[in-house]
Simulated assay, not measured.
Amino acid sequence: MKVRSAVPTVENSTNFDIVSDSSTTVGTTLENLKAAIGGETGASAKYAAFAKAAKEQGYDQIARLFEATSAAEQIHIGLEYALVAEAEPDYEKPAAPDCSGEATDLNLISGACGEIYETSDMYPSFIKKAQEEGNTKAVQVFTRAKLAESVHAERYLAAYNDLDAADDDKFYLCPICGYIHKGEDFEKCPICFCPKATFTAF
């Protein structure tokens, strides 16, 4: 993902369309935040299980990618939970489901499919509703998550294509929005402009 001259937003970007066969159930923004928390909780648990499977199967770099993405989803959960808690201070996050992995190539495809759904369907649908309700905080949180999820999908597909040609590159996780960069060649997050020095290496 290239760094632009301005932080990407719904207003200055053209990749926020909703797929024509959307399968997302859209409620109020508060309901959508809770749904997103549930989805991200499941994704984080799934990727943690996929990381364990990858390590057991000898794919150490891919295990690190899954670990980074699991942590990224926790960032999204935190951002979404903070907004829910403003409206419902007693709201409790859902428990993480039990998950297991299978063959690493299939786990990568499963992960990519989930991330593509979130970036092309779920989050654009939730963003549109938040815009209609004038909830600018939710628009920003959903926007950052949507943009990060597309990069997660890209990382998974690249790892799938290079499954038998791994390198030694590290993955770097943005602590603000969950963007993941592969390798050392960057200065800041292309989504939120957070500096490289604050990123977590995997």
Rank of each mutant, 00 (worst) to 15 (best):
C177L: 02
K128L: 07
A130E: 13
L33E: 04
G39P: 01
A36N: 14
G134E: 10
D60W: 06
A166D: 13
E56I: 09
L33V: 02
I109C: 05
D21M: 13
A148V: 02
T119N: 10
H76C: 05
A165E: 11
D121K: 05
D121M: 03
K182D: 09
D169L: 07
A197G: 09
K182P: 00
T143G: 11
Y160R: 05
A54Y: 01
I180T: 00
F16D: 03
I191K: 00
A148R: 01
D21H: 13
D164S: 15
D17F: 15
Y117E: 12
I77F: 06
Y47I: 02
P94A: 06
V84D: 09
S22Y: 06
Q74P: 05
V139L: 13
N32Q: 05
R155K: 14
A158T: 09
F16E: 01
D21T: 15
A153Y: 00
L106N: 03
T119S: 11
K129W: 04
E154L: 08
M122A: 11
E88G: 07
L147Y: 02
A112H: 07
S100C: 12
R155A: 08
V19H: 08
A45I: 06
A201S: 08
Y91G: 04
F193E: 04
I191F: 01
T119M: 09
P175N: 10
Q61C: 13
I75M: 02
D162I: 04
S13T: 15
E86V: 12
S70L: 11
E80G: 06
E56A: 15
I18W: 05
K46G: 06
A166M: 14
E11A: 12
K146V: 13
R144A: 03
D105W: 05
Q61R: 15
K196A: 01
L108I: 07
E154I: 07
A112S: 13
I109D: 01
K128A: 09
I62P: 00
M1Q: 15
L108R: 00
F50T: 03
F66Q: 14
I77R: 01
I109T: 07
K2A: 11
D168H: 01
D162E: 07
H76D: 03
L79N: 11
Q57C: 11
G42D: 15
Q131N: 09
K34R: 14
P175L: 03
Y179W: 13
K170G: 02
L106W: 02
E115Q: 02
I180V: 08
